[in-house]
C-alpha cells in the first residue's frame, strides 16, 4: 500500500496555517484560557487551576478597574473630539494656502514622527512644576504666581496627558480631513455660494457632509489608538498620582508584570478589547452611513 499523500491545496496552504496557528491562534487560546485561572508568573503551577469566571467577577467588582475604564473612555472622548476640531481647523487652513501647501502638509505631520515615549518625556519636562516651560511661561506672563502642580494633581495631570496625546495625534485627523477636502469636487461649493449660502452655511451643508466620512476614518483609527493608550501615560505619570491617571492598559500591565497576576490581567485585557471593538463598530457604522450619504464610489 502506498502512503497516503496530502492533496495539493492542503499541502500548499499548510505552511500558512501552521504559522498562523503558532503566532496567533495558540497564544490567543492560551491567554483566553489563562483568564480563567489564577495564573501568576511567579507560581507556574497555578496555570493549571481552573477557576471559571472568578477573575471576571473580581474585575466587575473592582473599583480600580472601573475607574481606569471610565478614565479611558473620558480620554477617548476628550481627545477624539478636540483632535477632530483642531484637525478640521488645521486642514481647512492648509487647504486655503495657495502657496507652500506641500511644506505645510509636511510640517503638519511632524508630531507623528516622534515616538509616543519621547512625546511623553518632552511633555513631562514641559509640565514639570519647577523647571517646566508651561509654569515658566505662566509666571513670566503674570498669569500665575505659584508653581502649578501639573503632574501631581489628578485633574491637572489628566489635562497634561490629554494635551500630549492631542499634540501628537491631531495630525491624523488633519491629514485625513485634508485628503477629503482635496478630493472634494469644487463645483458643489460654488453652487452653494450661488444658491445663497454664507461661508458658514456652505461649510455646514456642503463641505462637512462630504468630509465626514474622512473624519470617521480618523475616528476609527484614533479610537483604537487611544483605547490602548499606554506609553505617554506610563512616562508622564505612570498612572499616578495615587492611581488618578490610571488607564486600562497601565492598570493591565501593572497587574500582569508588576503584580505578576497574569490570569487576572488577561481577563482585564479581554474586557477592554470589547471596549475597542464597540468603538470601532460604532465608527464603522457611522462611516458606512456617511459614505452612502455622499454617494461615494469607494
Amino acid at each position: 500500500m502506498r502512503p497516503r499523500r496530502l492533496s495539493a491545496p492542503v499541502l500548499l496552504l499548510l505552511p500558512a496555517f501552521i504559522v498562523l496557528a503558532a503566532v496567533v491562534l495558540v497564544p490567543l487560546l492560551l491567554s483566553l484560557y489563562s483568564s480563567f485561572t489564577p495564573f501568576r508568573l511567579t507560581r507556574p503551577a497555578t496555570f493549571f487551576t481552573f477557576i471559571w469566571f472568578d477573575n471576571y467577577i473580581s474585575i466587575f467588582a473592582s473599583r480600580d478597574f472601573w475607574w481606569a475604564f471610565g478614565r479611558t473612555v473620558l480620554l477617548l472622548t476628550v481627545a477624539l473630539n478636540l483632535e477632530m476640531l483642531l484637525g478640521l481647523g488645521l486642514a481647512m487652513l492648509v487647504e486655503k494656502a495657495s502657496r507652500g501647501q506641500r511644506l505645510l502638509r509636511t510640517l503638519m505631520m511632524f508630531p507623528m514622527m516622534f515616538s509616543p515615549i519621547l512625546v511623553g518625556f518632552q511633555f513631562k519636562f514641559m509640565f514639570n512644576d519647577n523647571v517646566g516651560v508651561v509654569n515658566n511661561a505662566l509666571q513670566s506672563l503674570g498669569l500665575s504666581n505659584s508653581a502649578i502642580p501639573w503632574l501631581i494633581d489628578g485633574g491637572l495631570a489628566f489635562f497634561a496627558i490629554s494635551a500630549a496625546e492631542i499634540w501628537s495625534s491631531t495630525s491624523v485627523f488633519a491629514i485625513l480631513i485634508l485628503a477629503g477636502l482635496l478630493a472634494m469636487p469644487k463645483e458643489p461649493i460654488e453652487a452653494a455660494r450661488v444658491d445663497g449660502c454664507t461661508p458658514w452655511q456652505t461649510f455646514r451643508y456642503v463641505t462637512w457632509p462630504f468630509v465626514m466620512p474622512f473624519a470617521y476614518i480618523a475616528m476609527t483609527i484614533r479610537s483604537l489608538d487611544v483605547a490602548r493608550a499606554y506609553d505617554i501615560v506610563k512616562i508622564m505619570t505612570d498612572g499616578g498620582p495615587a492611581g488618578r491617571t490610571e488607564l486600562l492598559w497601565t492598570l493591565i500591565s501593572r497587574t500582569a508584570y508588576g503584580d505578576a497576576r497574569m490570569g487576572l490581567a488577561n481577563a482585564m485585557a479581554y474586557v477592554s478589547i470589547i471596549l475597542s471593538i464597540v468603538f470601532t463598530v460604532y465608527f464603522f457604522r457611522k462611516l458606512a452611513a456617511a459614505r452612502v450619504q455622499i454617494g461615494a464610489e469607494w
Binding site: 469636487p185 463645483e187 458643489p188 460654488e190 453652487a191 452653494a192 455660494r193 450661488v194 444658491d195 445663497g196 449660502c197 454664507t198 451643508y205 456642503v206 457632509p209 462630504f210 450619504q293 455622499i294 454617494g295
Partner: peptide, 20 residues
Amino acid sequence: LPPRSRNISMVFQSYALYPH
C-alpha cells in the same frame, strides 16, 4: 457683491449637484 446677493442661478457643466 458675493454670488448670493446677485439674484442669479447657475447651471454648471458638471452639474455640481449636492451628492448627499
